[in-house]
């Protein structure tokens, strides 16, 4: 597997809105590459006889009944917002629509 590039790390950081300086970019490229190399090691194992595992617990169908529970008090919720207008969270103007 080709080693992870700085450009790829910069792209992932940009998608996650994380700002990295040159030093950090270098350091995280190295660290992330090690993680991926570890995954590549695992991929090398012969797992032909092992069933895929989605979750370590082996639990399925964990559900709750459709019963309403009290929501938070609005004043308490809006107190967490960076800014409020018309009882809504006010954020810098969004360009375009959600994906």
């Amino acid at each position: 597997m080709a080693r992870l590039s700085r450009d790829e790390v910069a792209k992932v950081a940009r998608l996650a809105r994380i700002e990295l300086d040159e030093v950090e970019l270098e350091r995280f490229t190295d660290q992330l590459a090690q993680v991926l190399e570890h995954a590549a090691d695992l991929e090398a194992l012969d797992l032909a006889g092992v069933a895929p595992t989605a979750h370590p617990h082996g639990l399925v169908n964990v559900v709750r009944d459709d019963e309403v529970r009290a929501s938070l008090d609005r004043a308490e919720v809006l107190a967490q917002a960076p800014d409020v207008a018309e009882d809504r969270f006010a954020v810098p103007r969004i360009i375009g629509e959600a994906p």
Binding site: R64, D66, E67, V68, R69, A70, S71, L72, R74, V77, L78, Q80, E86, D87, R88, F89
Partner: peptide, 26 residues
Amino acid sequence: TRTKLFCGCANAFGAEPNTQTCPVCL
């Protein structure tokens, strides 16, 4: 449904803004 997909907040159209929220859906 009566409630949201992953929490017990009410799923009802037309309520006052931000009155049907909890730590999960926030």
